[in-house]
């Protein structure tokens, strides 16, 4: 609908075209993102196979903690994202950012572990150092997790476009955090590599990548 010569003309035209409207509900967005995560997980399992080792006690505690934090971040960012699809004023919760900060501890621990192990490694012993371990440099997991995040980002953008977000930058960040964390989670359940260095870096890097993509790419897509 375009502007009219007078406000009265516009109101008459809008009234004339009126039809019942389906309400946009945040729960729909949450379900859509949950479904997208499921789709991403199924695709990852179809390609890489589910890692049953996590069910038979082979997975390290660090693996579980990382995936648990990714799930929490995904839930917090999804919750903030779908709530932000409806116009509202007032202070918005910052739980997603605290969740992201908590997840940030994971790569920090990985880096500290790598540095400290390397500093104390006896190279003369012939044992493999953490920097020589190919698992430490297996970056493909980060790439696969990032690719899986695309499905979640797509779902989030579609829902935001149905809604009317008034804080576009925040919606962009939250889309990135949700896509990165849930995409990484969808892939991680197929990955049997559970060392601190590998999990801490490559299983969490999709969050960082998607946060940047979300912030830069999403606002123009959801502007209304």
């Amino acid at each position: 609908m375009e502007k009219q010569a007078t406000r009265e003309d516009l109101i008459a035209a809008l009234t004339e075209d009126l039809t019942p409207v389906e309400r946009v509900r945040p729960a729909q967005g949450a379900w859509l993102i949950a479904f997208a995560t499921l789709v991403a997980g199924v695709v990852c399992i179809a390609i890489f196979e589910f890692w049953f080792g996590m069910l038979t006690g082979e997975a390290s505690a660090f693996y579980w903690i990382t995936n648990g934090l990714l799930l929490l971040l995904g839930a917090a960012s999804t919750s903030g994202l779908v709530a932000g699809a409806l116009p509202r004023v007032g202070v918005r919760g910052n739980a997603p950012y605290w969740s992201a900060a908590m997840l940030g501890v994971v790569p920090l621990v990985a880096i500290i572990t790598v540095v400290s192990l390397e500093a104390n490694h006896d190279h003369a012993s012939g044992a493999l150092s953490v920097l020589d371990d190919p698992l430490t440099w297996y970056w493909e997991c980060g790439a696969y997790g990032t690719m899986a995040g695309f499905v979640i980002a797509l779902a989030a953008v579609l829902f935001l476009r149905r809604g009317a977000p008034v804080a576009l930058e925040r919606a962009g960040w939250l889309t990135g955090l949700a896509a990165g964390s849930l995409g990484a989670l969808a892939y991680n359940i197929t990955c049997p590599l559970d060392t601190v260095a590998h999990v801490g870096i490559w299983h969490t890097v999709p969050v960082l990548v998607w946060a940047v993509i979300g912030r830069l790419a999403v606002p123009p897509l959801i502007r209304w």
Partner: peptide, 8 residues
């Protein structure tokens, strides 16, 4: 008018 479905 366009976004009237977003009011709860």
């Amino acid at each position: 008018y366009t976004k009237r479905g977003t009011w709860d």
